[in-house]
Every structure is written in C-alpha cells, then in structure tokens.
Design a protein around this nucleic acid. Structure first.
Lengths: 368, 368
DNA sequence: CTCCCCATTGCACACGTTTGCTTAAGCCAC
DNA sequence: GTGGCTTAAGCAAACGTGTGCAATGGGGAG
C-alpha cells in the first residue's frame, strides 16, 4: 500500500540487481495515508494521535489501531516546522573523549530522553573555526536550547550563541547573559578541603598544578588553594604553582619541575584527576613514593581514581547529577521560566591512600 | 523588521522592555523576509543561497549580502521536510560514560561534522524498554542513518532498526542484514597476540576474564585465547575462564576466585582495560605483585593504561579511527553505494610492564 | 415544534524550504 | 518581422503536521 514491499522481493539481489533505488528513503506512511485508511480527514488523525478530547473515543481508538498496524511514525521534522519547537537540544563539549565530559553527557542525555528531548552532540575541539561552524549548525537545526560544558573559550563565542536567542545552560562555567544560566560545583570549597586535608597531615610545602587553558574552574580551585594556605598560616609561594593542560602528559612536565626545586613540595594538589595521573607518574619516575615521599590529590573522582595504586585522594564531583541538573534547568528556561537560579552543587573530599603524613623535619632533609 | 503581521502583533522585537514573551523563540528571518528586502521572489533567494547557476551573479551576490546582514540561517527542518533527507544520523551506544564508547563517538562526531552531518546521541542503558523508545525516537526524527556501537543486544532490536529501512553500521558487532554493515577489530588475532606474548614469557597457567553480557567481541577474544593455547600446546581448562561485566568491580570478584584456585594462574588475559583495572586491584589485595607474581594484559589501550602502576600491557584498538571508518562507511551507504565491505582494523599489542617472566617451578610452589 | 448547545468532524491555511514548469525579456539568424 | 534559443526570474505545488474556525447533527429545554 505504501509501496512498502520493495527490495525484499529480489531476495539475493546483492550485486546483480543493479537497479536498486539510490537510497531514496522510501516514503513512510503519513497522516494522510492513515486518514484514507480510516476514512476520516487527516486533522482528525492528528488529533486522535495526540489524544485530543475533541475526537470521539471510539474513532480515536480505531485510528490508533490502524496507525499502529501501518507502522506509522509521526515526522518530528514536519511537526517541528509548524510548532516551531523541535524538542531537541544541542550539547557542546570541547572534546567527547574526556571522561568528565562523558559523565556529564550521560546525565544530560538521560534527563533529556526522559522528557522526550533528543540531543545533538557537537564538539568544538577548541578550534575556533570549528566552533563557529558548530554553533551555526545548531542554529540551523533550530534547537530549543543549548548546554555547553567546560567552555574554555566562553567569552569568545557565547555572545554568538546568545545571539541565537536560545536558552543556554553552562556547566562549570559562567557568563553574564540574559538567557545564560549555569551549573557549577563548589570549586573553591572543594580545593580548600583538599588542601586543608594536606595541611592537617602536616604538610607545609604544598604545590598546585593547574590548567593553562583558562578554565574558570581552574581559577576557582586555585583560589581555594590559596585560601586554605592563608587559613593555615602558610605563605603562598608562586614557585609552587605550575600549569598543565588537564591531561597527564603536561602534568608530568610540570610536576617534574616542582620536584627539581631546591625545596620541593611534599604534597601536590592537582587541578583534576587526569593531572594527578601524570603527577603520580612523574613522582615515581624520580624514584619517590606516594604517599610516603609526596602526597597527591586530584579533583573529579573519575572512575579510575579508586583503582590507581595507591588509590587517589580526590574531590568528587557529582558529574551525572550535574548533567541532569543542567538539563532540568534548561527545561525550565525553555518553558519560559525565567527565575532559574545558578545551581551550585557540593564538592566532597574523598580520602584514599595517595595522601599521608608529611615527613618529619629530619627525614625531610634528604633533599639537601 | 520581519514582523510579518500575523497574530504575534505588538512586535515584541529584540530587547523590548521587561515583558519578555513566554520563550516563544522569536521568529528567525525566513527566506521570504530576505526576498522582500531584496525585492525578488523567495525561490530566487533559495537558489541564490545554494549558488545555483540559475540566478544572475550580481543578484545572487546582493541577496547573499542582505541575507548575511539580516542574520539569516536556513531552517534545516523545513529543508528536511521537502528534501526528505535530514543530514542527521543517530548514534546508539549502551552507555555514554564508557571510555571506549567515548573515543569511538569522538571519531564519529568528527567525521560526521566534516561532512555536514549532525549526530543524535542516544543511549540505551541496556534497558530494553528504553531501547525501543530510543529507536522510535530516531525513526520519528527521520535520521538518514544509524550507527550502533557495541550492541549487547544486537539480535534483539536490530530487526526493529532494519525495519526503518535506514542504513546501519555496527561497531564491534555484526549482524546479517541487508542494510547492515560493520566495523570490527581483529579480536581473535589481538587476543591471540596477547596470550602468545604471555606464553613466550614462560606462562602456562593463563586465565581469561571475559564479559558475561554476551558481546560478540568477547566471544572472539576468547577464541583467540583458546587458539593461542592450542598453538602453544597448552591444554584449555574451563576453570581458568571467568566472566566479569566489563567493569572493574565485577572483575575483582572473578579474579579473586581465580587466585583462590589450588593451582592459580600466573597470568591473566582480560577482556578489556576496565576489567584489567579490577584485576590489578584484586591481585594486590592478596598481597601479590604485578608482574612478579601475576602478569596481566588488557584490551583497548584506554588513555589510563599507560599511567597505571605498573603500566598495562594491552592490545590497542584504534578507537577514533574505527569511529571515523564507521561514519565513512555510513556515508557511502547513505549515498546508495551498496558495495561497502565489512571493515576490519588491526589490533596492536602494546607491551608494557604489567607482564613479566613466569616464575620458575620452585618459586611457584609458594602456592602449594 | 423551535431554539440552542454540545459533541464531533472537516476545511483551509500555515510553517519555511525546494523544484518543475512557465513566463518575460533579450538576442541572433533567417 | 518571425521564430527559436538563452538567461533570469516568478508561480505554484509539494513535503507532513497542527489548529482556528465553520459545519453538521443530535438532544434537551422551553
């Protein structure tokens, strides 16, 4: 009836047939086809499928049955055209293979799906040119909202995004804008807790390995670090702050420099777990032990943190939850609610075995 | 400017006072608006924007300039309605936060983007009910093609997918179907290489920790394991095969049972790196050392493998490349090419420090 | 019996593109 | 001049859905 049975007939048409239609997706049954079968008008079908009270219950049931048998699936694209809402959001992420992004994405996707939204995944790879194209594409696709996670170039293209007049939610970043809201973690408190933990263990020379790419979260964690030092009556020393790029390789170099200092740190607070991964390696490469010689803390509590040797002391971010929260906030924004507050979630220090008591003065002298 | 005198009246343009409209996304300029401004008909605008030779060069330039100034962005949804192609694909993944899936996704997204395709991310979470809904959603959204990675339930819902008459590419799985093609890694050869490496180190009691969820890749790797044993003249013993679920927690349990055997293995070949993560922990929990007491191999070469202590010997999958390949194959399928072969990529054994020589007989007696 | 109301359904149009076909010039050759 | 060709532009229809409004019919109240 809908010319549904083609192709299959040939059976073994593999290469011989040759005359296969050029993958012109064969027409799906439309609302009008169903209307014809049910002997009603197509608006009636439309209403019946939306459970509109305007159509007689029996008629509706009959129509639904017919639609079901015909394998009818409403076209979201046609619907989107007339309703001007696509029930689609865009998720912009710098890179998909970052475990943090993965977890957040997971939470977003789940929440979106639960509410009937589909999500376009777009990665910018931190390439400005690509970023522009990605945003352009999302605009053309008429997404109802956008979530951007860990934008490292926020200020650069967020104005562009805002120009689309589409609600935006940022994860782990913020930006002053009319439609723009954020979900953030207590970076300052989290980092402070980690450093205070180290101070409590007797450490005095504590280093911080950050991220040179200018994430806002890095600035905040550094602030937390400084704050803890101040409270602990320890002088801040710029020489103990190095920058990586959020990946293990860069951290190795940074930590290596730290350990080469005349008075090397006895503890290292890392911007995130990936950085800590590199730190651990750099420390071992020098023949030092964790935590006996140097203590290390991370941030995120990625899945592998508990499985490292030694298991990593870190600050947990409820990443899934943050994604979910971002989506929920976006839903509110999209429904016109304008009062969505900035959401901040709590950071939780997870103490494992990569942190230990600082060496006593005498032992410490080994460094000269 | 583009008020188009319909109901909306009042022209709630731009930053109008405080009375923000209920997030009814304010109308984007349409092709007709541009036509009016350029004093031409809208089909002419359409053609001009597509660089059609049918329109005068000067007129086209003028139109493009006007469109640009007006911030015009073509509506992909309207275009999709008439062309019946959305330039959109669906990516179905069991879970987004799996690092393997993340890497593959990365490659897919990149390739898709390069060709002007957008990708809908959908996770099934291995929940059949959800799976059905996800597929339904993709169908309604009229995606041009679908990629499914590591389907654990292939046979269950692939027929459903195929019924959509949309080209499908599977990653790390295969299924006999007309529109269905695959990208796979040489699982058998990869696992065999790992086990032969172990045999070469003198190991004789080698265990395999698999995945009870029934992935095809697991079956193949197990086959490679058996194959290597046979070639090495070592008898296969079912007691040395245990099943995890591809996550560290389950592997701990499995490996613990292996180590409790009267004659425990001296080497463990793991289904993937996540499994290896658990294996390492279980081994240490018993006070044994890697690789001195037990050697361990993984599969995937996820980013953390090189950073473990000891660095993990594993079989590398070119995950990004596989994603890219999947997308390229899908593109061919979508353009009607029917000759896309099954793609198989090579696995590469990466020897690191988690594998070492088997203990000699005398040392080995510690267990007995 | 008349009037009005309610329940149900159909009509017509709109959403923003693309595209086949027609039309309007302009030009050249005969 | 007439006819045909080329170039440029417009007309109209289509894609598949949603929705305001009109039309139809039946039933109850007066």
């Amino acid at each position: 009836m809908f010319e549904k049975d083609r192709g299959k007939a040939g059976g073994v048409m593999q290469t011989g047939g040759g005359n296969r239609a050029p993958r012109q997706p064969l027409r799906q049954p439309s609302i009008k086809d169903i209307a014809r079968l049910a002997r009603v008008s197509h608006p009636t079908v439309s209403r019946a499928l939306q459970n509109s009270p305007l159509v007689n219950a029996q008629t509706a049931a009959k129509i639904r049955k017919i639609a079901d048998e015909a394998g009818y699936r409403a076209s979201a694209v046609a619907r989107g055209l007339v309703t001007r809402r696509t029930r689609t959001i865009g998720l912009v992420v710098t890179t998909v293979d970052d475990p943090f992004a993965g977890e957040v994405t997971c939470g977003i996707e789940q929440a979106a799906n639960d509410h009937g939204y589909a999500v376009f995944l777009a990665s910018s790879s931190a390439d400005p040119e690509r970023e522009r194209k990605v945003v352009q594409a999302l605009a053309e696709r008429r997404v109802d909202g956008i979530i951007v996670t860990s934008s490292r170039v926020g200020a650069l293209y967020l104005p562009l995004l805002e120009e689309l007049n589409v609600p935006i939610v940022l994860v782990n970043d913020q930006y002053p804008g009319e439609f723009v809201h954020s979900v953030m973690i207590e970076n300052v408190e989290g980092a402070r807790a980690a450093v205070e933990h180290l101070i409590g263990l007797g450490h005095r020379r504590i280093a911080y390995v950050g991220d040179r790419l200018g994430y806002q979260s890095d600035a905040e964690r550094l602030a937390g670090y400084k704050d803890a030092l101040k409270r602990g009556g320890i002088e801040f020393r710029a020489a103990l702050v190095k920058e990586g790029n959020g990946r293990p390789e860069a951290a190795i170099e940074a930590v290596d420099e730290l350990l080469a200092l005349p008075a090397p740190p006895t503890a290292i607070c890392c911007y995130n777990d990936m950085t800590a991964l590199g730190a651990l390696r750099a420390i071992r490469a020098r023949g030092l032990r964790v935590p006996e010689d140097v203590s290390v803390t991370g941030f995120d509590d990625l899945f592998f943190a508990a499985y490292l040797q030694p298991p990593l002391t870190t600050v947990r971010q409820p990443m899934r939850r943050m994604g979910q929260l971002a989506m929920e906030n976006l839903l509110k924004l999209m429904s016109g609610e304008d009062s969505v507050a900035q959401s901040r979630v709590e950071a939780e220090l997870i103490v494992r075995a990569s942190t230990g008591r600082a060496k006593t003065g005498s032992e410490e002298s080994r460094h000269g």
